[in-house]
Design a protein around this nucleic acid. Structure first.
Lengths: 252, 252
DNA sequence: TTAAACCCTGACGCTACGTCATGCTCAAGG
DNA sequence: CCTTGAGCATGACGTAGCGTCAGGGTTTAA
């Protein structure tokens, strides 16, 4: 119900000093003070702190956070949805970093001394402050793939579901076939097949190019996905990733 | 081949000032200087900068980075593999943050004013410097789930593969059944079934509790996984996540 | 040969706290 | 009742990792 500094600090995983600081700059002042001057935080403060931490995690300067939270039209739920979208973006970035490690390792393993500099830093350009301005304007954070997917699947009948699964399997099989025939993952034919796969994905949600690329990365990185595709045809996971990456690049 | 400050800065996505700074503190000094005093970076510098940026991304203080890179036994490839493991960990953290948003939204949507504080901050405790010390000692970064998985699947025969798939399906079905019977995801029975599922995962790699939890989160968050389980039984994705989370908690 | 685009080296500024120092408060135990 | 240890408060100063001028050379394409 009510918390004192150290309790709240423990819960939220921040230091007491941080709470002092947030109070000092007026970012988060406790609901009230005890007679002896102790800071007493209430439930509203917990939610506000959560918002602050999300913004901070996403590297918004404290001053900016204060401005956001202070806006008369600030909507906590909408903000959470926006945070979610930004976190997903960051997940994408981190996955690209992992991929960068893999390509670097591959090159080093291949004995190459010198490697293409673009490959070396793929995924690094941190989300700068610039990003905050851009997104503040675009405000595209309201669509939410997860909820979308949930709703669409819920509305699907058993038969429709069987169809959808068959579509997906057919699309994957067509891609596996293309790979076996030596079709380059960046070729027009491969891209068309990716388009078909994307059409299948649309049964679940509306995938952005970024998401398609992320999905491709996941096929390579996640053991369960990887095993699934790898068994269908050796090298298929990488092939899919490359084709999907190329497809996404063509849409960006 | 050779780069001047602005070029390298552009490639790596850092500022010129940053390169100046790294030179000033001796973290990254250019291979040579032009007659007029310009900094000239060579290929080795590129790789070193990549290492620096990975360490920085993972929030190691520059001084610590300098120490690491300066160690006589420093092995670039091993370091990359370690970075990879840490990035995967962070991916897990971010996924937990996304999950935290979802539960918070659910609670708010349910009209609840006050929500459990542990739920509010799940995933926040940032990886502190403490972590760097711990890991420096443990040095467990050498195992790599991805490579592991790849090798094990490759060695599997077609028949063995069919068996493994059947095992997995059976484990999932048993869990779905438990859910339908109202067995709590944290109960001993559910945990035993998770154990069975984990046994199946071991066909691919040796999953840490952290990884099992991350996998559960993914079942909920990723549309393809979610759709798969959701169709098998409504609510199964969440049920699996909860059970796997509980299982992982019991191992931590 | 001149302007635009880089490059250099200081030097000061800034954010988001960490880290004392100094002193009050409060609950439990002797 | 008094002490003691954990917790709280308010300054005040320190730090990391650059951002941001200022003042002045260098390169290169037109």
């Amino acid at each position: 119900m009510n918390y004192r500094v150290k309790e709240l600090a423990g819960l939220a995983g921040v230091s007491v000093r941080t709470l002092h600081h947030y109070d000092a700059i007026g970012l988060l002042s406790p609901a009230r003070r005890s007679p002896s001057g102790y800071r007493i935080y209430g439930p509203e403060d917990l939610l506000r702190l959560q918002q602050i931490l999300f913004y901070r995690e996403l590297e918004m300067p404290l001053e900016g956070i204060a401005r956001e939270l202070g806006r008369p039209d600030f909507d906590p739920e909408a903000a959470l949805v926006a945070h979610r979208a930004r976190l997903e973006e960051r997940l994408g970035r981190l996955r690209r970093l992992v991929a960068t490690i893999d390509t670097t390792l591959a090159r080093l393993g291949g004995g190459e001394k010198e490697l293409k500099p673009e490959e070396l830093y793929e995924g690094f350009p941190k989300e700068t402050a610039e990003r905050w301005e851009r997104e503040a304007a675009e405000n595209w954070g309201d669509s939410d793939a997860y909820r979308e997917s949930r709703k669409r699947v819920a509305r699907m009948s058993k038969e429709r579901w069987a169809e959808v699964k068959a579509e997906g399997a057919a699309a994957d099989e067509a891609l596996a076939d293309a790979m076996r025939r030596g079709v380059a993952p960046g070729s027009a034919e491969a891209l068309a097949l990716v388009e078909r796969k994307v059409a299948h994905l649309r049964n679940f949600y509306e995938p952005s190019p970024e998401m398609v690329k992320g999905l491709g990365d996941m096929y390579v990185q996640h053991p369960e996905f990887r095993a699934h595709y790898e068994k269908q045809a050796p090298g298929l996971a990488e092939y899919l990733r490359d084709a999907m990456t190329a497809w996404a690049a063509g849409r960006a």
